[in-house]
């Protein structure tokens, strides 16, 4: 059985058709990128699967159960602005762990602060961290509650391009270590080919799935390999760009 199952899902806001007839299955442990132009409804789709918005028609199910509300087993990661400025790094990571004992909480916090490379910054406040560090902090806060699915909504969009590349490598390392199912929304073609097992290419409004592309390259990926460039160019032409500036 697939982990996430989206069937015949449509979304309208008033008279605006945002998503039309989306069908997608995501396997357990799979890394899926949802790629599309701004305003194609990809964030809306993620918010529906996350339980924050109810679809107009169709369903999104996880483990066969329709999603009706947010659930701590599936955590949504925003751009780094989602960390709480009034909490330290440690306290941010512990935010979702209020059901655990103090000892368990401490273990989890230590582990995930280490995993995302923030050791030494446990008592720092977010304002003392760089954009990339805040993004890692938010990933650590999400991972600490041990979710089985992570939703990432253009998480690296606000970072500079060098930090963005580093964060992609970090995310892949964490994904391989933690074996989470990841739905990752982006409008960056290169990003999707670098990260995903499969790329879901969406059309502009109303958002529909144009094509689902398998990225059959093992990690770490060589960004100059012919297959990488070939897959990237397939996406470029699918979106209707000649890949020339």
């Amino acid at each position: 059985m697939s982990k996430v199952e989206i069937s015949n899902l449509s979304m309208r806001f008033g008279s605006t058709d945002v998503l039309r007839d989306i069908n997608l299955s995501v396997r357990e442990g799979e890394f899926v990128c949802i790629l599309g132009p701004s305003g194609c409804g990809k964030s809306t789709l993620l918010n529906i699967v996350g339980g924050f918005i109810q679809p107009s028609a169709g369903t999104a199910s996880i483990d066969g159960v329709p999603v009706t509300r947010p659930d701590p087993r599936r955590i949504f990661v925003f751009q780094e602005r989602g960390v709480f400025p009034w909490l330290t790094v440690d306290e941010n990571v512990a935010f979702g762990l209020f059901r655990l004992s103090e000892a368990e909480k401490r273990d989890r916090v230590t582990r995930y602060v280490q995993l995302v490379g923030l050791a030494g910054f446990e008592n720092a406040y977010p304002r003392e961290l760089s954009g990339g560090m805040k993004q890692r902090l938010e990933v650590a806060r999400a991972l600490a509650v041990n979710p089985d699915v992570l939703y990432l909504d253009e998480p690296f969009g606000a970072l500079d391009s060098i930090t963005r590349l580093q964060m992609r490598r970090e995310l892949l390392r964490i994904w391989q270590a933690e074996k989470k199912t990841i739905l990752f929304v982006t409008h960056d073609i290169e990003e999707s080919v670098q990260l995903a097992d499969r790329v879901v290419i969406m059309s502009a409004r109303p958002g529909r799935i144009r094509r689902i592309l398998d990225i059959d390259i093992a990690h770490p990926r060589d960004l100059s390999a012919p297959r990488y460039i070939q897959l990237r160019d397939i996406i470029f032409s699918e979106i209707g760009l000649a890949h020339q500036v």
Binding site: F52, P70, P72, G82, G96
Partner: peptide, 9 residues
């Protein structure tokens, strides 16, 4: 912030 709060239950 509110969305994160609801997400974490």
């Amino acid at each position: 912030y509110l969305q994160a709060g609801r997400n974490f239950g």
